[in-house]
Amino acid sequence: MKKLTLLCLVLLALPAWGTELVVYTYDSFVAWGPALAIKDAFEKAHPGVTLVWIAPGDSSEMLARVVAELELGLPTADVFVGLADVEVPRALARNVFRPLEPERLAHLADVPADLRIGGDAFVVPYDHGYITLIYDARALPDELVPRTLDDLLRPELKGKIVLQDPRTSSPGLSFLLWTIAHYGEDWPAFWEKLLPNALTVTRGWTESFDMLEAGEAPLGVSYSTDEAYAQIVYGELVYRVLTPDGEGFHQVEYMGVVRTTPNAELAHALLDLILSPEIQELIPTSQWMFPANATARVPEAFAAYAVIPEHPVSLDLDTVAANLSAWIRTWQEILVAR
């Protein structure tokens, strides 16, 4: 019996031979995004190296996983892709990344300065976009479409809204911060009414978008590029983007090298590959975000249908770093109080 077990273990361990670069990201980066194209390009450029994407959850969940694995001394990722700007302070506080060597990132020069943070010391951006609301035009009658954030509290919308958990998902966190930016001190009052109206709060964006696609709910938090997605994929605007009060929360996504990696050189090569125009040009129609590299060309249909809110909202990262855990705790208490 023991022998059989050992055999199983040996069989499981076999594929681990040879160099592997393990990259954690969020699920949709693999399900939708350019992950496979990146894998092909990277493995072609580095023969003998296997790139392994691991993405069982949304970004905050994956970040938590890296943090847990670092703290528990378990083997973990070499590279992390998909950290929202608002999560960067949390990651830096947990000492997840090793300092970058910008000289190894040739394409970083093409990234506009306003997307880059912290002097590129630990993380670099690879795309950006806007968190907005979207709705299924086939399922939500016009008169119910919210025009402002306050409209979300209308009793007619009860059980029709899907939100994401800001503790595990970056769009969820961005949406929470958007409401904090919008309502200031009064944000808890808004959430106290919003949560009972929500159908559910999912762990990640993938689930919530899938619920939309499955017709389980007509309204949810998502990205401003979803009209472009609907136009390009379905050929019609089945999903409409809402910018309540003309707002949308600006989200920049970052990547970095995990501090315990033994393959720092390969890790940098991967970051540079993702910043290259070749991959950046895939981002709009796979990842449905705006590329970070300014030289990357964007498809016309995407440019035409990707909504850019009139009043992009963002929060100062130092404020976020100082208040995030208190906000999350308050949000959590609202969530479970009834």
């Binding site: 019996m1 023991k2 059989l4 077990t5 199983c8 273990l9 069989l11 499981l12 990201t25 699920d27 693999v30 399900a31 992950a35 994407w53 691991i54 993405a55 069982p56």
Partner: peptide
């Protein structure tokens, strides 16, 4: 990527662990 391993790998791990645990 959604599992971090292969589904078959998960099944084999499960069987191996269950066998060892039962023993």
């Amino acid at each position: 990527p959604f599992l971090g391993t292969s589904p078959l790998g998960s099944i084999l791990t499960s069987l191996g662990v269950a066998l060892a645990a039962a023993g």
